[in-house]
Structures are given as C-alpha cells and as structure tokens.
C-alpha cells in the first residue's frame, strides 16, 4: 500500500444538510453580481461548483491501468490531452508527464480515490484531493474566443487549440487551466483564491459582448 492517508471530508450525519457550503465564487457573486444574458449577448459564463477534483501523480502506464479498472477511462494519449467519458461528466487532463487532473461529479472523488489507491497498490503514485481549492468556469458563445484573447497569451485559434486539448497558462496576472471539451465550450479551472479576480476580469473582458452569467 502507498501508506498515505486519505481523508474523507464528506458531510455526513443528521445535521449535514444544515451546513452551508460556499463555492469559491460565493463572495464574487455577492459583491460583483451576476449580470443576466441579454438579447445581444454573445458570451455566457457559468460556474460548475462542487465537483470532485483529484490530482493524480505517477507513471502513465500504472495510472492508465488503474483508471481503466476504476472508471473505465484511459489517460489521454498525448501531452496536453483532455479526455471525457461519454456523458461528459468525468474528465482526465494531462498536466505534466507525471500528473493528470481528474474531475468527477461532486462527492464521487472519495470513492474514486479509495478505489484508485486499492488498484495502484504498491506502485509509486500520489493522489491529492484539491476539490475545495479550485472551481470550474464554463465560457460559451461566439465571443468566448475573443474574451480569451483578451485574457490569455496562449493561442486559442481552433487550428492551435482543437477540442480535446487543455493547458495550464497565464490568465491576465493570474493563471488558469484552460481546456476545450467541445466546439462551443471552453472550461477554466481556477484556483479558489484567484477566483474572484478571474471572475471580475471575465465580467470586464466580456462587457463589450454583453456577457451573461448563468446561475
């Protein structure tokens, strides 16, 4: 066994439902609001909060095998690759030659981590739960690419950034994980402490396109 500690932070017990859960954008929505889409809106923004985010470290071969066992998914075959399951609910993104980001529906991460640890056995690997530390923003609409061009130095032209690609890059003066799960949609994985800055930046960059926030 890897002899690491897994900490299940799921809320359980009779009063679990009374515990307020706040996403990284809770304060931003409170302070900056969430403008509604208008008739001429060409970009929309949406937070997909409370998903399960796991950082997987290890060798590609063993991790790939374990993931196929546990989730029926393979690691992306190439650097900067992003794969999803058929429902689009689970995704695995290449982050580094020995690092992948696995995102699953919220709550599922504990079970997945446990089963992965079992499947990986004595292999050298690490799994870190980072679900509370980051959130996922979706950017959609014909102006999404222009908003990104105002924000990231990375080339987001479809020839250079096809569907199924993901990168970590500089976003304004912060950084994001930027990914393209489908033709129309871009995803930004944002660190909690930078979420407010990123949100305000996006509202500002999207102003000329009548950005709307879906809640």
């Amino acid at each position: 066994m890897s002899n690491a500690q897994q900490f299940d932070t799921r809320l359980v017990g009779e009063h679990a439902g009374e515990i307020a859960v706040e996403s990284p954008l809770a304060y931003s929505m409170h302070r900056s609001g969430a403008p509604k889409a208008k008739a001429d809106t060409t970009v929309t923004l949406r937070e997909r909060a409370f998903l399960g985010h796991l950082t997987l470290r290890g060798g590609a071969i063993v991790l790939d095998e374990a993931l196929r066992d546990v989730l029926g998914m393979s690691l992306p075959g190439e650097p900067l690759g992003l794969v999803q399951d058929e429902a689009g609910e689970r995704s695995i993104q290449w982050m580094s030659p020995d690092e992948w980001l696995l995102i699953v529906p919220g709550g599922e991460e504990f079970d997945v981590e446990r089963r992965l640890r079992e499947a990986l056995g004595d292999a050298h690997f690490a799994i870190s739960n980072v679900s509370g530390g980051q959130t996922l923003l979706e950017l959609e609409g014909e102006a999404a690419r222009e908003v990104l061009m105002k924000s990231v130095a990375y080339d987001v032209h479809p020839r250079h950034f096809p569907v199924g690609k993901g990168v970590t890059t500089v976003f304004a003066k912060a950084s994001v994980i930027l990914r393209r799960p489908s033709e129309e949609r871009w995803e930004l994985v944002v660190r909690r402490s930078f979420a407010d800055y990123t949100y305000r930046w996006l509202l500002d960059a999207g102003e000329e396109f009548g950005v709307g926030v879906e809640r």
Binding site: R57, S128, N129, V130, G132, G133, Q134, R191
Partner: peptide, 9 residues
C-alpha cells in the same frame, strides 16, 4: 510527489 493544497484547506 509534491502537490499544492494551499487553496483546498
């Protein structure tokens, strides 16, 4: 392996 969990906790 080292992973940042600053924002998680």
């Amino acid at each position: 392996y080292f992973n940042s969990v600053t924002d998680h906790w």
